[in-house]
């Protein structure tokens, strides 16, 4: 089980006492991870930062009830995951891949388009996974959380983490078979 480091623990304690500056440092420390989790879960880059900010605001409000027994990062990611799921419920329709490419100002360069197209296919494949297995995959593949941390973050047993991860990877292997064979 990964707990907060000494410096992080001090920042958490000060934040719990209402120290906004300490909380700002915590935001700075975890912003990229939280943005990534929201983005990977929702697939919406435009709203990922906004949702990540919302996650931090919610974390600030929930801080008094935070107990430093598990990883602070995991606790934050749980909030971020829930916000991403809420966001998906609100916006059921996802952005169309082609539309996105037309809007892309960097679409002049062919190589970049190819790269972007590939990442859009990957993004779509990840987004097509059920939320439960997608959460596990995002936390493992993009945030490199251990099985134990994922279990704590999502409040599920380690066995479930493994089976969901296995399911997500198997599904992706068959969805992305063309990409996998290409490279």
């Amino acid at each position: 089980m990964m707990t907060a480091t000494g410096e992080e623990y001090e920042l958490i304690t000060r934040s719990k006492n209402g120290d906004r500056q300490a909380f700002g440092d915590l935001v700075s420390l975890h912003q990229q991870g939280v943005i990534n989790v929201v983005y990977r879960m929702s697939g919406d880059r435009n709203h990922a930062e906004d949702a990540a900010q919302e996650a931090f605001v919610r974390a600030w409000q929930k801080l008094p009830s935070y107990r430093p027994v598990g990883s602070f990062r995991g606790w934050l990611y749980r909030i971020a995951t829930n916000i991403a799921i809420d966001m998906l419920r609100r916006e059921k329709q996802t952005e169309d891949v082609d539309d996105h490419l037309i809007k892309d100002p960097s679409s002049g360069v062919e190589k970049k388009i190819m790269q972007r197209q590939k990442s859009e296919i990957v993004k779509k494949a990840v987004l097509s996974l059920p939320t439960a297995s997608r959460s596990v995959l995002v936390l493992r593949e993009y945030e490199s959380l251990s099985y134990q941390e994922i279990a704590e973050t999502l409040e599920i047993p380690i066995g479930t983490v493994m089976s969901r991860l296995n399911y997500a990877r198997k599904t992706l292997r068959s969805t992305l078979v063309e990409l996998l064979e290409e490279e």
Binding site: R20, F23, G24, V27, S28, Q31, Q32, I35, N36, Y39, R40, R45, A48, E49, A52, Q53, E54, F56, V57, Q115, K118, S119, V122, K123, V126, E141, Y142, L172, L176, L179, L180, E183
Partner: peptide, 24 residues
């Protein structure tokens, strides 16, 4: 393959993001 486009999402301007959170 999954991590190939990881860099794309790492564009957040740290200071701007933090100050926006603080305002909210």
């Amino acid at each position: 393959i999954l991590q190939a486009d990881l860099k794309i999402s790492q564009k957040a301007n740290s200071d701007k993001f933090v100050s926006q959170v603080m305002l909210r």
